[in-house]
């Protein structure tokens, strides 16, 4: 049986209000898909952390939430400055902002799959997946 055509929602991120709106929608989508409240909550927090990073470092970008039969995929992309030291950011505790330095490293822990693709001066794309169990 082939996979159903995925349903996609795109959220343009330009301000924190956009982030708040995206995470609220993301929570609803995850719950609708049958994720447990705690899992849906994690997905919403990941949208919030990644969306916040877009707003903070790139100024603007896009968060895309894609529903598949068996998983949800969050893609956060921007054309900002890029992450100079991906390993350090992944390790956590590193921040140049007002957060706790947990945004990226913490988001990785909350999801099943997590990939960062970042090029200095060109931008960053982060893809995070959580499987329905």
């Amino acid at each position: 049986m082939g996979e159903e055509q995925p349903v996609q929602r795109r959220f343009a991120i330009k301000s924190i209000v956009d982030v708040v709106r995206a995470r609220r929608s993301g929570l609803g989508i995850a719950l609708e898909m049958g994720f447990h409240q705690a899992e849906a909550n994690k997905i919403a927090v990941v949208i919030s952390e990644l969306g916040r990073n877009i707003e903070l470092y790139a100024g603007e970008g896009l968060v895309t939430v894609t529903k598949y039969d068996d998983r949800i995929e969050i893609v956060a992309e921007d054309q900002g400055p890029g992450i100079p030291d991906v390993e350090r950011v992944m390790a956590g505790g590193y921040t140049t902002s007002q957060g706790m330095g947990l945004g990226v490293s913490g988001s990785k822990r909350l999801m099943d799959e997590f990939d960062i693709h970042s090029i200095i001066g060109q931008g960053t794309t982060i893809k995070a997946v959580k499987w329905l169990r």
Partner: peptide, 10 residues
């Protein structure tokens, strides 16, 4: 509050 990200924690 049903979504608490790291900024909220801070």
């Amino acid at each position: 509050v049903d979504i608490c990200d790291s900024f909220f924690g801070r």
